[in-house]
Structures are given as structure tokens and as C-alpha cells.
Design a protein around this nucleic acid. Structure first.
Lengths: 367, 367
DNA sequence: TTGTAAGCGTTATCAG
DNA sequence: CTGATAACGCTTACAA
């Protein structure tokens, strides 16, 4: 195991002081061209890579960005990570994953944030669906810690990126109403998340607009996952005929898949017997049968945008005592648009249902 | 912004030396009960959290595990991460993600490994589908860096976890043969990955066993993603009738979704007109229409196993000069079993196709 | 433009 | 069982 090179070795080999090497490393302008080149040559020659722990300790900063995510079972999370990764890989920063595994057994969710907080491991934090942590995040941000929240934030007290879940859900529900449905059910996401409530709110708003009296039997709890869609659908299908819905709007596509399964089990045909609209536009939604009408949520772009928001906060001069929060400068909060992707499951007539699913939506797919 | 507490502050507050505080922090046995409790009390009181950068620097170790992943577009990756996260969150280690974004534009893939290598940022590495890096990983491991590879490794030169892709593919193909098919096509994964070749090999072995002459027209290139499945299927469907396959085995479920789309576009019914088997058992596969017969790959467990393999290498005494590699101790290489999940797409008669998809397979799903 | 020297917050060695 | 003190590898005033 070869002895590790340190900055001192390089300095000696290049015949300069370690200070000079450090200057070269940090791309300071005040180094003579020739000196710089000589140092760079020695560095390359020996494959020297500075120790980030030491650098961070000395400079009082870090090159790590923490990402706090809830359940990995939600397909939107990997997409968000991809969005972040696509940007961060072009910087000096690395991404550290903190997933509080969603299992009920997890004792103390706030521990995670404390870990991030106290420890100066990370220079900044991106938190996905952080409703649990809103208070902590706000406090952190006020203390000057760079923080960006993804979805699930309402007030503009920390920078965030999200979609307008209310209007997306409203649009989906309106679409069903426009198709003639009046008995429309909604299977919700987990109560802990704002997004769940927002989607339910959008649903209810659309009903109100159309003067449809909400029926409590048609609003079901759920958890974003397929089984909750299946269970909810079962429950709805077992309602007395006149109370049964003619359409279901689920809080996620995953739940819609569960509805699809339940419908098949009951010998029902979508959309003939029951119309269906999801939310998210996960990749498989174009391939399920029938192809799923859904509200597209630009997850990749959300990740992308979040890290773009965070980066400037990280790079700002640490001596600069001007806080992150300044009375005149508003906190950056970006709302990305959703879009209704109409396929076959809602019963609308579409020429070529699958044509709405384009490789362009998924940058990594080959054309 | 409150001044950060350091170990010295705690020492002063507790009326002990910083050495003692350090001992308490590291759970050394040689501290008096009372002293320990006093120190712990002060720590808790002030919410002190040690600085990992400093600790790492001083001790010459790190609490970071690097994970190198290729494309996030493959659904198996998040599952693997989940498996890792479920274990690592119970340790002192954190997970750092290095995704070499699969885009063709990525200039230098080996840079990523160098980054991991030279930098002593991470204490160990888990590399997924690391065929690109096999040589580098081997060298690293030989130099004493804890490394575990996931899938895509053949020789036992670094510890790895994988499934037996060959036998999985063979089993899938045999199943189709058993159903009476003789013209069976295979749409491959990317040529860069060993898994792609292994699956093709298993496919070919099954054909040979059954004395079916392989037809080069029925072996198509692909890239694991839906569009390559769709394109491959198109190509197959456009073959002259007598050359056309009656069954398709795709290297991934994703590709199978593409085949499903192409079949529908061509007015063909699966499995009546064309039988279909995938590989991976992604969650949506139970919900596509018809439900997809596939080879289940235990991705969660692979991640889980990989980190379990890595952890002991990390925790081993750094002074212990006994290398990771010892002539008498074999390198741990674990092969996990695949299993054929028979649903409807292959044309086998199944009572309740969906019953094979159990919440138990996906630990995070509610029962 | 370059070098000297003092930290950064922790662990490790070695006395007591 | 406890406490000085010297590292760890790098950055950064401050000098030259």
C-alpha cells in the first residue's frame, strides 16, 4: 500500500512551499505561470489528490451536499436524484444521501436533521417532502445554513421547488368532470405530506366549481403506493351501486396501478366501467393497460432546479456576514408547472394514446 | 449564528480534558462511570456533535461509503440503494453517491474512480455494474481499499454480490420452450455490461439444450430501456411471417414494456400472438397488461448484502497490516438466486396471475 | 510572487 | 482512569 502523498510532498518535489501548492490547488491568481505549471506537473505526475477532510477542516467548509429523502419506494425520488446528480457531477460537490427509512420503526425522525445540523459534514441540504422537518429547516435556514426544500412546503420561509399540486389535481378532476363524471372518487396520499392534502384540495375545488356535492365515501386515505390504490378501489367497488363512483383520481400513478389491478379482479374494464386518472406520470404509466391519463410532475427538473438554487448559497464567501436572509431579497421559491397527459384510462378519445409519452420527457432514453 | 461547540468547550464545561471527552465519544471502556455520565450530560445539554472531518483527519479514517452507480433510469438501482440505506442508516456511516451520468457526453469515466481513489473521502466503495472499472477496482482492492461490486463481475478478484444471470435467463427461455415455442427472440442489454452477455448466454444455452438452432435475426441489441424493447419488437414484427418469433425474452422488464407497446401498436395481443418474458421483476410488471412473466432479481437484497460485506472491511483495525487479501481466506463472492415469476404474458395458464406479486417481496409496501 | 507559522477539531501516544 | 502534547493535511493571515 503506497504511502499517501500530502501537500508537503508535492511542495518538496516541486521545490516550493506548501502554501504555493495550496494556491495552485485553489486556483488563486497570485501564482507565477511557471511556478503553477511546475506544481501542476508534479501533481499530475504523482496522481496527488488533496484530502478533502483536511481542506474542509482548515477552511471551515465542506464539499458535501446532504440530501434527505423519505421512502425510496416512490418513483419520483430517483428522478429527483437524477436531476440533482446531473448538475452536481459538474461541480466539486458530492451528494450524501440521508434516507430516513420510512418504516414505522424509525424512532426519531428529527435525529436525522440533527445529524446533518450539528455535524458540519454537509455544506448544504436538499430535503425532499420535508413536512416533518419544516420547523427545523426553517430554523436552520435562518441560522445561515443553505437549505432547499423540494415539494411539500407552503410558506416561503425556506427556498423551495415544487409543483402546484392543487392546480394539477384540479385540472385532473376538471378533466373527468368535463368527460361527464359526477361521482368522482379520490384516493389520497399519506396524511403527513402536504402534497397529499394539496391534491385532495385541488380535487375538492374542482368539484365545488362544478357544484358537485362532495361525498365523504368517495374520499379515501392512502399512502402513495399501489396497494393503497388497490384497497381503496376494492372499497369503492363494494359500495352500493348508486353510491359507486364512475371515476377515480388517485394521488399517484402507483396507486392508479393498484386500482387497475382491483378493476381487473372485479371484472371491470377501464375506462368503460370506471375512469381513472393518476398523478406523477411515472415511466410505466404509458405502458399499463389502458395507458394512464395522469398529471405530469417534472421530477428530474425539480431536482435540477433545487441544486441550482442551492449552489450559489454554498459558494458565497463564508466571511460574508450578510445573512442568507435579507429583508429586501425574497427567498427563492420556484413553482414548476404540471401538465395533464391525456391517455386512455380516463375515457377521453385519443388518437394515439401512447404518442404523448415521448422520449424527450425522459432525457436518458434514446430517441 | 451561534458559535459552534467544540470538544474543548465540552471538556471545559465538564471539567475534564479533551482527551476524556474524546474517550467518551468513542465509547472507550477506560472512563469512570461518573465521569462518562457527566460528560454525556454536558454533551446532551449543549447539543454538541463532533466534527467528522476533524475526527477523520486525526484518526486517518472516514465515515463515508462511496457508491458508484451508472444510469438512474434503471429501476433496479433505487432498489439497490434502498437495500444499502436500510443497513447503513443503523451505522455511523453515510452514503455518498457517485453517479456517472450515463450520457454519452461524459468524458472520462475513469475519472470517477480516481476521484474516489485518490481522495480519501470514502472509507470504502460499492460499485454497481462496474464492468468499466473492473481493472481499477481490482487494483484498489489489492491495495487494501474496501470494495464490493454489485453484479457484472465474473472473476473473484474483488468481493461481489450478484445474481446468476445466466441461469435466470436460461430458466426464462426454458419456460418459453416448455410452452411450445421454438422461435424465441432475445432483446439484449447494453454490450458494455456483463449482465447483458450473461442473459444472452443463458438464452442461447436453453436453445441449445432443446436443440433449437439459434437464428441471428432473433438476437437484437438493446440498452435495458423501454424504447429499445419497442424498437426491437418493431423490427421483429416486420420480419417475414415465417421468420417471425412467437416469443420474446427481453433483458429487462423495461424493455418488455416497450415490446408491449409495440405489440399493441401492431394490433397484436400478448400472449396470444406473441409470448413475452422479462427480467428483473420491477414493481409495475404485475400491473402491466397482461401481467408480465419475468425473472425476479432481488435488488433490495443485493444492496443489503453488499453493504453487509463491506462493513466488516471498514471496521477492521487500520493498524492491522494483514491485507484484505489473504491467501487462505477466499474473497467473499455471493450469488443470490433469481426466481421465475410466472404471470400471464408468457401464455402459461395461471389461476390468479397477480397473486405472485406479494407485498412481502417489497418490504416497504403495506400488507 | 512566495514563504512562515498559526490554527481547524479531533485522535493517539505516553506519562502520571 | 486521566491529562498533556504531538500529530492529521490543509488553508490563510501576515511577512518578506
Amino acid at each position: 500500500m503506497p504511502k499517501k502523498f500530502t501537500i508537503v510532498d508535492i511542495a518538496r518535489l516541486a521545490g516550493v512551499s506548501r502554501t504555493t501548492v495550496s494556491r495552485v490547488l485553489n486556483e488563486r491568481p497570485d501564482v507565477d505561470r511557471e511556478t503553477r505549471e511546475k506544481v501542476l506537473r508534479v501533481i499530475a505526475e504523482h496522481g496527488y489528490v488533496p484530502n478533502p477532510a483536511a481542506a474542509g477542516l482548515a477552511a471551515g467548509r465542506s464539499r458535501l451536499v446532504g440530501m434527505v429523502v423519505p421512502s425510496f419506494t416512490w418513483p419520483i425520488i430517483p428522478e429527483i436524484i437524477r436531476g440533482i446528480a446531473s448538475v452536481i457531477s459538474r461541480t466539486d460537490y458530492e451528494l450524501v444521501l440521508y434516507s430516513f427509512n420510512d418504516e414505522k420503526t424509525t424512532p426519531d425522525r428529527s435525529d436525522i436533521i440533527n445529524k446533518l445540523l450539528g455535524t458540519q459534514l454537509t455544506a448544504g441540504i436538499i430535503a425532499v417532502f420535508p413536512s416533518y422537518f419544516t420547523e427545523q429547516l426553517t430554523r436552520l435556514y435562518q441560522q445561515g445554513v443553505p437549505v432547499v426544500a423540494i415539494d411539500d412546503q407552503q410558506e416561503q420561509r425556506v427556498p423551495w421547488v415544487r409543483v402546484d399540486n392543487i392546480s394539477g389535481a384540479r385540472q385532473a378532476t376538471r378533466h373527468l368532470i368535463g368527460l361527464g363524471h359526477t361521482r368522482i372518487a379520490h384516493i389520497m396520499g399519506p396524511v403527513e405530506y402536504l402534497a397529499s392534502h394539496d391534491r385532495a384540495t385541488g380535487y375538492q375545488q374542482a368539484l365545488q366549481e362544478a357544484s358537485i356535492t362532495p361525498d365523504a365515501d368517495l374520499l379515501l386515505p392512502g399512502d402513495f403506493l399501489p396497494t393503497s390504490g388497490r384497497d381503496g378501489a376494492e372499497q369503492l367497488f363494494n359500495l352500493p351501486p348508486e353510491q359507486r363512483p364512475t371515476a377515480i383520481f388517485t394521488a399517484t400513478d402507483q396507486q392508479a396501478y393498484g386500482v387497475l389491478a382491483a378493476a381487473e379482479a372485479h371484472g371491470m374494464t377501464v375506462p368503460r366501467d370506471i375512469a381513472l386518472v393518476g398523478f406523477d406520470d411515472d415511466a410505466p404509466s404509458a405502458f399499463v393497460h389502458p395507458p394512464l391519463t395522469t398529471v405530469r410532475q417534472p421530477a428530474f427538473e425539480m431536482g435540477h432546479t433545487a441544486i441550482e438554487l442551492l449552489l450559489p448559497m454554498l459558494d458565497r464567501d463564508p466571511d460574508d456576514d450578510s445573512a442568507l436572509i435579507q429583508p429586501d431579497v425574497p427567498i427563492p421559491c420556484i413553482q414548476l408547472p404540471t401538465s395533464l397527459i391525456v391517455r386512455a384510462s380516463c375515457g377521453a378519445v385519443v388518437n394515439e394514446a401512447r404518442s404523448t409519452w415521448q422520449p424527450a420527457d425522459y432525457p436518458h432514453f434514446e430517441a
